[in-house]
Design a protein around this nucleic acid. Structure first.
Lengths: 166, 166
DNA sequence: GCGATATAGTAAATGCGCATAGTAAATCGG
DNA sequence: CCGATTTACTATGCGCATTTACTATATCGC
């Protein structure tokens, strides 16, 4: 697996191996595998953990969030959020209670079981995260990722902006 | 447009929002959306393009690869590789010819139609890639990603036999 | 009040991403 | 040559991730 990138490789991407996007994808796949392994003992997937932790955080901060609020906060697709929250509800980790003020909305409350699991899983995630990002200075990683996250398109943007210009 | 970063705070501690892994995941989701949009006119998904381009590259470099070789090169799961290659075969973009020397193996050859499509799609991908990574110096991104890709776990590692430890 | 529009959530369908498990063929030890 | 092990690929199934389309409710303009 040693094959580091042979050269500077600033020339045209004759080979996909040198594209930042390709690297990003591969790195993320590896990270997801590491995180999945870390979360397996808790019977949680990555997204399940993200939504559980997000619901907990928002719950602390501003009260039980609606699904849409949670999706917005987590950067997840609303449809996926709906799916996964029902899974979490099925596991008894969250409740989805109707919003008294808006009967369309459902508010996500973390149950006691959910909170207990979240706390334990959080340690595993932080550990896995630290291990995975150890090879690179934390500041560097955060700088790059934060710069890129500035160009994040809103997930729920219906506005299918330009199919894909030439 | 507007709120690219949903919440004010990527910088406070103690919650998933500031984890590099969480950021990496969100950035990758956004990148995948951008790439999916760029590839939509060509009726290719991201992975289909990666495998098509990978098969082409390896074909140039060392002859038509087996599925396993291609999976190894692309960092993809062998099972997924098998699935997606059959999709590509159904589209007439690749052929899967039996290896004369090893009757278990199938070698992936890019057809003329596949090569024509790959070339056009490559431009779209390079453009999307350049646009997405514009906010950060290329050298910085490559440095971080290359450092992290050093810790890539082999995808096909059967060695997972130990059940996730803890 | 009432119609147009926007919003919260969901159903169904497609395609990755991977774990588990299985078949068949190659390879190795004897 | 024969059994044991490895290897290349595949069937199945679960869980994301997204698209399209739909229901029901809220809200704004009048």
């Amino acid at each position: 697996m040693g094959e580091a990138v042979p050269e500077g490789g600033f020339e045209r991407a004759g080979r996909p191996t040198e594209s930042p996007g390709f690297l990003l994808w591969r790195v993320t796949l590896a990270w997801q595998r590491a995180l999945a392994a870390a979360l397996r003992p808790y019977d949680l997937t990555h997204v399940q953990f993200v939504l559980l932790a997000g619901a907990w955080w928002l719950g602390m901060d501003e009260g039980a969030p609606t699904q849409r609020r949670l999706a917005e906060h987590s950067g997840t697709d609303p449809m996926m959020t709906s799916q996964v929250l029902r899974t979490l509800e099925g596991k008894g980790l969250v409740e989805r209670v109707p919003d008294p003020a808006d009967s369309r909305a459902k508010r996500v409350r973390v149950t006691e079981a959910g909170e207990a699991l979240r706390e334990r899983a959080m340690y595993a995630v932080e550990e896995a995260d630290a291990g995975f990002f150890a090879p690179v200075p934390r500041g560097d990683a955060l700088a790059v990722l934060n710069a890129l996250s500035g160009s994040l398109a809103p997930v729920a943007a219906r506005a299918t902006r330009r199919g894909a210009g030439a």
